[in-house]
Simulated assay, not measured.
Amino acid sequence: MSDKEKKDEILSRLKNIRGHIDGIIKMVEEEKECEEIMLQIAAVKKAIEKVGYFIIESHAAECLSSVENKEVIQRILNIMMKFLS
């Protein structure tokens, strides 16, 4: 994935999250049920985590690009992602 594609993906995810947050604001203003609001907050939290992981994984891949053994790179990335989960 090119740098532009990565950036576009990150921006797309963040804009989607912003839409969800706007929806939560509207739900609070309309005094929706707490359970509905908390469900949406949990979804936003998970989406933010996924964007963070995507950014970390992309950055780590760039940093490790000088390592010649691609299997080593993938193993390190897998370990990092498990650690961050």
Rank of each mutant, 00 (worst) to 15 (best):
N69T: 05
C34S: 00
K82G: 03
N78I: 04
I56A: 14
I41N: 03
M80W: 02
K50D: 14
N78W: 03
M27L: 12
I37Q: 05
V72W: 04
R18Y: 06
A42W: 00
V51P: 06
L64Y: 02
I79F: 08
L11K: 11
C63I: 06
I55D: 00
V28C: 08
I73S: 05
L14K: 05
D8K: 15
K4T: 14
Q40V: 03
L77K: 13
M38R: 09
K32R: 14
K4I: 15
E5V: 12
A61E: 11
K46S: 15
K45C: 02
E5C: 01
H59F: 13
R13S: 11
V67P: 01
L77G: 08
L11T: 05
R75S: 15
L11I: 13
I56R: 03
K70C: 04
K15L: 10
A42K: 13
I10W: 02
Q74Y: 03
L39E: 08
K6H: 10
V28I: 15
S66M: 00
S58D: 08
S65Q: 12
E31P: 02
K7P: 00
K46G: 06
K6W: 03
H59M: 10
N78E: 11
K50H: 07
L14Q: 06
L11D: 14
M38Y: 01
E57Q: 12
R75L: 04
K4F: 04
S58V: 00
I48L: 15
G19S: 09
I17T: 06
M38K: 10
I37S: 03
G23M: 00
H59A: 10
Q74W: 01
K26Y: 04
M1N: 09
E9N: 09
I21R: 04
K7D: 08
E9H: 08
I76A: 11
I48K: 02
I48M: 15
I48S: 09
K45Y: 06
S58M: 01
I56W: 00
E71A: 13
S58C: 02
K6A: 12
L77M: 14
R75P: 00
A47R: 05
R75H: 09
R13N: 11
M81E: 14
E57V: 08
E68G: 10
M38F: 13
G19C: 08
G52C: 07
S85P: 01
